[in-house]
Design a protein around this nucleic acid. Structure first.
Lengths: 192, 192
DNA sequence: CTAATAAATGAGTGAACGCTCACATTTAAG
DNA sequence: CTTAAATGTGAGCGTTCACTCATTTATTAG
């Protein structure tokens, strides 16, 4: 028996790369097969369908990252520390696998609408942490969704620009800037 | 002779709506024709192809908005005022046509990659304004692309959440929060 | 009215898609 | 070695897509 799991991993890596580069709909089975150097039929020995392949790549990575963020924030007591830890974890993820990271970014908007009915996301963790901090008056009160959107916006957009090599700063420096900036975003608004 | 320009407008409005809702690739000619109540062939009396239709909707609106932003910022002298004016114009655009607005947001990432080789965008205007402000020491020096990314991130992500009705604040209030927050993002970092 | 032109139509076309399946090849067990 | 299961293969299937074109319908000019 050939080692099928090797092939499955190859398909996962290759298709992930193509999904990020061209989008899911624009990536064909033939594209994946050609890039991975396998026959089209082989893909179906390991995945039920293209949709199932996309879903598996997405849910595995996304859910596990959200859980990890949740674990990270629990190790700290104040909103400031929780936030900093989450952002650093975010940067580490980006550093370790920019392709996968971009894929998860992509997913937030359109591509996986059909596939993703409703899912516990990293955003939920962020909102929870912010809400707790406001309850303890660590930052001024304001609409939690709005606060989360602003923090998320800073981090995501910087990540997108960095992924396209539009930003030169190294990642560790960038991480500290993000930590500072996001904190400043939170403490400045609202009616204290 | 029937009034063909009416039909062209109908096609433009209908297809724009579908492009935003489902994405360009996922929207078929049959979808557009059915939604507009016309035959498939009729679309081709007014547009060369689906790509050309998408491109025309995109470029018309996008380029004109970027030009408008540029005009708006020229009416003010300081970075703070320029930025505030641009953000308010941004909110006004969102208020006036959230569908079109979302479409332009969408476009930034993948959907129009083939169609958009390289284009003078609203981001460029933002970068120019920030660079001028730094040159005049209105805000601390830092990498312009990074500063622009953070400001853009705040505004865009809030717009996305607002578009999905995840934020309750009314737009005028939201606009002022964004103006304050973005300014705070710019003045806090860097090495003054 | 009639003729000429512009606009609208929808069945039809070739290409590309996701996916299947009969068959070939490799591996593991007895 | 023999055998059976697991895995890989690629031509081909049915479907859907963007797009075409011969024809019909609406509009204007004389």
């Amino acid at each position: 028996m050939r080692d099928g799991s090797k092939t499955k991993e190859l398909i996962a890596r290759t298709s992930l790369h193509l999904f990020v580069e061209k989008g899911i709909t624009e990536t064909t089975i033939r594209d994946i097969a050609a890039a991975a150097g396998i026959a089209e039929g082989t893909l179906y020995r390991h995945y039920e369908s293209k949709d199932q392949l996309a879903w598996e790549l997405f849910s595995e990575n996304y859910v596990s990252f959200a859980r990890e963020l949740d674990r990270v924030q629990e190790e700290y007591d104040t909103l400031k520390d929780k936030l900093a830890a989450m952002i650093r974890r975010f940067c580490a993820f980006f550093d370790q696998d920019p392709v996968l990271f971009s894929y998860l970014l992509l997913a937030q908007h359109h591509q996986l609408k059909k596939v993703t009915p409703d899912m516990e996301t990293a955003v939920t963790v962020l909102q929870k942490v912010i809400a707790q901090g406001m309850a303890k008056s660590e930052v001024p009160e304001m609409e939690v969704e709005l606060a989360a959107a602003m923090v998320l916006g800073v981090v995501l957009q910087v990540a997108v620009f960095k992924a396209y090599n539009r930003i030169n700063q190294d990642l560790s420096h960038l991480g500290e800037i993000l930590v500072d900036t996001c904190w400043r975003v939170l403490v400045g608004n609202g009616t204290p």
